[in-house]
Every structure is written in C-alpha cells, then in structure tokens.
C-alpha cells in the first residue's frame, strides 16, 4: 500500500510535466508569473543548500577526529571573506525581492473594465452575487476575462483562496477587500477558506467554475430564473444548498451547529430561555430574519441574520422544503 502511495508522492513532489515542482495546476494569468519566481527561488535555494550541506559533509570526512589528525590553526577571521559572504546574499535577496514585488503589483492593480462579482463570506459558506442579482454558492466566471471580487464578511475573518489561480485575500468584517484574477483554462477548481474561522473552517469549500467562451452569459441568464423552473420545495432545497443553510443544519437527522431539519416541521421545540414553540411557518420566518430571538435549547447563538438577503418568496420556498422533510407534519 505504501509503495502505491510513495511513488506517486515523489512524482507529485517533483512536479508533473510542465509544472513547477510542488506547485498545483496553472489556471490564471498570475500562475505563470508566480511559478517563475517560485522556480527562481527554488533554484537559488537548492544551490545554497547543496553548497552548505556539501561543504559540511566534506569537512566532516576531511577533518574528522582520528589518530594523528590535529586541528590546524587557521586565522580566526578574514574580513574580506566575510564581507564577500555578506554582500553576495544581499545582492541575491535584492533580486528575489524585486521579482516578488513585481508579481505582487500585477495582483494589486485591478484592470479597468473587470467583471465585478460581490462575495459574502460567512461561517461557513460562500455566496457569490452576480450583477444581475443572482446569488450562488459556487463561483462561475468567464475564461480570459478579468474578474474582480468585492468581498466582505458577516462574522469573522475569512480568506478567499484558489490554489490554481495563486490568488488569496483575507475577507475582513466591516470593510471591503478586493482581489482580481483572469482565468485561462476552463474547468473546475477548488476554493478554500484560508483564514481560520472556527468549527467548520475546513468545510468552507466551494468551486470556481471557469466557463468556455460564450457559455458564461448563457449560464448566468439561465441561473437567474432557475428557481422559476422548479417546484417551491425543489427551489427551497436549492436555496438550502446555495445560501449556507446546509453548513449548520443537516437533513439526515444529525445535529450539527444548529438543529437538523429532518422531521422538524410541525414539532414542538424547547428554547434556550425555557419556553416552548411549535416549528411552524412563522417560527421559521423569524428564525431566518432574526435568529437571535429564538435560540433552540442546546445550541449556541451563532446564526447570522438573513434580513435583506432573502426575499419573502424565497423564505416561502425554504418553508416548503422543510415541510417536505417531515411527511408527518400533515401539510403534505
């Protein structure tokens, strides 16, 4: 088993054909530049490492303590030598600094006319809002066109990270941080949350889907009236997946950060303050718009409000979906 893994490991570490050693696939215009600086530093580092360790090993063999070998007196300092090995590294790090900075400036300056998408990060989901108002939990972008992300957070600091694009930016509550990229290869790539944000940090994943030329516009117009083509319960399920409900509320009966939705509708629920309520349409509506007002017993008050982020129509769809999860509620 180990052999099956170890060989691919070294192959992967050494880099697939055409890739920089250790780096993931390249799918944005930044990737080439970043990988070039990576290769440069890797080369310099290897050179110095081999030099230092090589000399160390050489000295160990050459000058190891043995019968008849004495340490030979050498000068205890040599200013010229020491100035040389101060100046050479200085020049080298200067070069590395320059190329690192040049690549960074490309990332810092958003080109004019970039396609703008709003990003809302919250524990532990992503919502991408397109100019036509459509909100999705996956990031869809056109190929070969600069895309600018205007990002903010609802709760704590998150980090938007797409390894294949070499793009990363912290998302800080109370301000807008922007970043941009231009995808070069159609396909699907991972989005990770890079800044630690609590329980579900490592589940705060999504995909960026790079569409072929022309496909993006088609996808966007279809997505905008996607909900109209579904039954209310189906639309509710879609919203459940897309708007971050599922990160905390399961539909398989297991309690996570919040209560499960399975078999929930129509039952009676104990609240933290000791009172009891029936899980009905009004309770759900209030829980979405003002979650802190009715905390279920045994759970932390961590849910953010969705006020202004879901329409009344969408709330109705979510309620229909919840009803469908409890066939015994009698509303079916």
């Amino acid at each position: 088993m180990l052999m099956n893994h170890i060989i691919p490991f070294f192959l992967a570490a050494a880099g697939d054909a055409g890739l920089s050693p250790g780096m993931p696939v390249r799918a944005s215009t930044f990737a080439t530049g970043v990988d070039w600086v990576w290769d440069l530093i890797l080369g310099i580092s290897l050179l110095f490492f081999v030099l230092i360790i090589g000399l160390m090993i050489l000295f160990i063999f050459q000058y190891r303590a043995r019968e008849g070998h004495e340490s030979a007196p050498t000068p205890s300092h040599n200013t010229r030598l020491e100035v040389i090995w101060t100046v050479i590294p200085t020049i080298i790090v200067g070069i590395i600094f320059f190329f690192g900075f040049r690549g960074y400036m490309d990332m810092a300056v958003v080109p004019r006319g970039a396609y703008s998408i709003n990003v809302l990060a919250q524990r532990w989901s992503w919502q991408f809002q397109y100019p036509n108002g459509h909100v999705d939990n996956e990031l869809h972008v056109p190929v070969d066109r600069p895309v600018k992300l205007v990002m903010t957070s609802d709760d704590v600091i998150h980090g938007f990270y797409v390894p294949a694009f070499r793009v990363k930016r912290d998302i800080v509550p109370g301000r807008y941080n922007t970043t941009w990229f231009e995808a070069t290869e159609p396909g699907e790539y991972d989005i990770f949350c890079a800044e630690y944000c609590g329980t579900g940090h490592s589940d705060m994943l999504s995909k960026v889907i790079v569409h072929k030329k022309g496909d993006f516009e088609k996808w966007l117009s279809e997505a905008a009236d996607l909900l109209g083509t579904m039954t209310p319960a189906e639309a509710g399920e879609w919203l459940y997946n897309a708007r971050g409900c599922k990160q905390c509320h399961t539909i398989d009966g297991a309690a996570r950060i919040g209560p499960t939705f399975k078999g929930d509708f129509g039952t009676e629920r104990a609240l933290k303050d000791g009172s009891k309520v029936t899980v009905d349409e009004n309770y759900i509506r209030r829980s979405i718009l003002d979650p802190q007002s009715q905390i279920a017993a045994g759970f932390e008050p961590v849910m953010p409000t969705y006020k202004g982020r879901v329409t009344d129509e969408e709330i109705t769809m979510i309620i229909e979906f919840l009803k469908s999860l409890n066939p015994e509620s009698g509303d079916q």
Binding site: G33, R102, Y104, K168
Partner: peptide, 23 residues
C-alpha cells in the same frame, strides 16, 4: 535551519507569499 531559512525566501517574496500564506 538551513531549510527553514531558505524557505523563508519563498515567503518573503510577495507574489509567492500570496499563494503560500496560511498554507
């Protein structure tokens, strides 16, 4: 420490650090 120091060069270089930060 040699490896630790040399890998610091990757992290100090701005463009590369963007990719490596928090990984």
């Amino acid at each position: 420490f040699g490896i630790g120091g040399l890998t610091g060069l990757f992290l100090g270089a701005l463009a590369v650090d963007i990719h490596l930060h928090d990984t």
